[in-house]
Design a binder for these strands. Structure first.
Lengths: 182, 182
DNA sequence: CCCTCGTTGTTGACGCGTCAAGTTAGAGGG
DNA sequence: CCCTCTAACTTGACGCGTCAACAACGAGGG
C-alpha cells in the first residue's frame, strides 16, 4: 500500500517526471507550509487506511452471509439487547453507535419493517422516540453473536498481543476526541 | 460506545430480563462453544469499531468539502501520481488501494468522465488495462494533498505518540494478513 | 481443432449513507 | 398570546459500493 501524503506527488523526491506536458492554471503546487508525514507516520497512516477500507468490508460481507444482517445493524440490536429494558432513545442510540441520527433513523426503519425493533414516541415533553428490541429482534442478536465474535477474533483480536490491544484503546480515544473537536 | 460481543446479550451477566416474553424457535441461544471477549479485548474492539465508523466518514466529508473528491478517489490519483509514468495496471491499482476490481472500475469510470484519468488497453497478450493520470488529474492531486495531510494529522497522527504509531503498523499488517487468509 | 478454464475487466441492479429539507414539539422573549 | 429558536426526528434524492452476470482473451487437454 501507498497513498502519498508524502510530499509533492512522486515518492518523496521532487517532480512528476513522465510526459504529461504543462499543467493547467494551478497556484503552482502546494502552499509550501505543509508538514508532510515522515516515514513512520506515513507507514502508520497507510496501515490505518488499509484497515479502514478492508476490515469493515470483510466484517460486513461475513455478517451478511452468516446472519443476514449488516455489521451496523448488529451493533444497533446488540446495544439495545444490553440495555435494562431493551430500550434506548434514538439520539442516545445514535451516539452509542457513532452514527448520525439520520443514518440511525433509516436503519431503524428497515429493522422495524423486518419486525426486529419497534419505535415508540415517549409521551413526556419534547419529541423523544425510543427504539425497543422485539422478541424476534432479541432472538436474532443472540443467534448472530457467536459468528460476530468469531469474526472479530479472527480478523483482529487474536492476531494481536496485549500491547497492541492497549494501544488500540488509546488510539480510539484519541481519534474520537479529535473528531468531536470538529 | 458499546457493542456487546460480551456474551449472552445483557451486560456480561446472564438473562435478557425486561418484559419481552418467550422467544421464537431459536436453537436455544448461542452454541455454547464461543470464546467471548474479555474486558481488554472488548474495549479494544469497541475502540476499533468506533474508528472504523467515524474516521472514514470524517475524512470523506472533509475531502469532499475542501477538494471536491472522495478519500478513495484521492488515494487512487495519489498512487498513480507516485508511479514512474503516472500509470498502473487496473488490477495492481486495485490491490494497492485495498479495493475490489469492480469498485476500482466504477471509480475509474467516474474519474475518466471528469477528465482526471484515462484508461488504455495494453496491446500485449491477455486483457490488461492501464490507468493513466492526466495533466488535470495530476493538478488536482497536487492541489488536494496539503488538505489531506492536514486532516490525517489532525484526526490521527498528531494525537499519537511513537508507541501508538508503531503499534498501528503492526496491527495493520496483522489485520491484512488475517483477511487475506480468507 | 475445439472446448473448457482462468485471468482481467466491465456493467447493471440494488441497498445503504449522506446531505439538505422538512416536521413536531417545547421554551423563551416581547 | 404570538413569534421565533432549538432539539429531536424523519424523509427523499442522489451517489457510491457490492454482488452477480457477463465479456474479452490466452492457455492446456483431449
Amino acid at each position: 500500500m501507498d497513498t502519498s501524503t508524502t510530499g509533492a506527488p512522486g515518492p518523496g523526491g521532487p517532480d512528476p517526471r513522465g510526459g504529461e506536458g504543462a499543467e493547467a492554471g494551478e497556484p503552482a503546487g502546494p502552499p509550501a507550509g505543509t508538514r508532510w508525514l515522515d516515514g513512520g507516520e506515513l507507514a502508520a497512516w497507510l496501515a490505518t487506511s488499509a484497515i479502514m477500507i478492508s476490515l469493515p468490508a470483510a466484517l460486513d460481507a461475513r455478517m451478511q452471509r452468516e446472519s443476514g444482517m449488516t455489521f451496523f445493524e448488529y451493533m444497533v440490536l446488540s446495544v439495545l439487547s444490553e440495555e435494562p429494558e431493551h430500550t434506548m432513545q434514538m439520539s442516545d442510540l445514535a451516539a452509542r453507535t457513532s452514527a448520525s441520527l439520520s443514518r440511525l433513523s433509516h436503519v431503524a426503519g428497515r429493522l422495524e419493517k423486518r419486525g426486529l425493533l419497534a419505535r415508540v414516541r415517549v409521551p413526556g415533553p419534547g419529541r423523544r422516540t425510543n427504539a425497543v428490541l422485539t422478541g424476534a429482534g432479541y432472538g436474532e442478536v443472540v443467534a448472530a453473536a457467536p459468528g460476530h465474535v468469531a469474526a472479530v477474533r479472527e480478523y483482529l483480536v487474536d492476531g494481536l498481543g496485549p500491547a497492541e490491544l492497549a494501544a488500540l484503546r488509546r488510539i480510539g480515544a484519541s481519534v474520537e476526541a479529535a473528531i468531536d473537536r470538529t
